[in-house]
Simulated assay, not measured.
Amino acid sequence: MILHHIQSSTAQSAGLRLALRYASDLDALIISGDATGSVLQASWQTKLAGKSVYFLDEDVHARGLTDLVATRYPDAQLVDYSGWVQLSLMFDKVITW
């Protein structure tokens, strides 16, 4: 089980695309930093559908995206830094893209 940490914008990095290519059904993704806004595009919503997705709440709130994330990713969970640490301990490995 791998926690894929996506922190770079999809315009700047292929990290999310690569993470989705290698992620298994048991893996999860945590979206933070510049990736937060870029995954709100409809094409990414489709690709992330059915995946276990978390967002770092500080980055979502800092960008004023709370309502958009809730609307476009209703099954995603917002986590704080403590929650991020807890997630990292639940998975065998964390890969940052």
Results as ranks from 00 to 15, higher is better:
I2C: 05
H5W: 04
H5N: 14
H5P: 00
I6S: 04
I6Y: 07
Q7A: 12
S8Y: 08
S9Y: 04
A11L: 13
A11N: 07
Q12P: 02
A14E: 11
A14K: 11
G15C: 07
L16Y: 05
L16W: 01
L18V: 09
L18D: 04
L18Y: 00
A19T: 07
L20M: 15
Y22T: 11
A23C: 12
S24L: 08
D27P: 04
A28Q: 09
I30R: 03
I30K: 01
I30D: 00
I31Y: 03
S32W: 14
S32A: 12
G33R: 06
D34R: 10
D34H: 12
T36M: 15
T36S: 14
S38H: 09
V39K: 05
V39F: 10
Q41G: 02
A42C: 05
W44H: 14
Q45F: 02
T46L: 13
K47H: 07
L48N: 00
G50A: 09
S52F: 00
S52D: 02
Y54K: 09
Y54L: 08
E58Q: 11
E58D: 14
D59H: 12
V60Q: 04
V60R: 03
H61V: 15
H61Q: 14
A62D: 03
A62K: 04
R63W: 12
R63F: 11
R63D: 09
R63V: 11
L65W: 09
L65V: 12
T66K: 03
T66R: 02
D67E: 14
L68I: 01
L68W: 00
V69I: 12
V69R: 00
A70Q: 07
T71Y: 01
T71A: 15
T71P: 00
R72D: 14
R72L: 15
Y73S: 09
P74F: 07
D75F: 06
D75M: 08
A76M: 07
L78S: 12
L78I: 13
Y81R: 14
S82W: 00
G83H: 02
W84V: 15
V85D: 11
L87N: 06
L89H: 01
M90S: 13
M90G: 05
F91W: 03
D92S: 10
I95S: 06
T96H: 10
W97R: 03
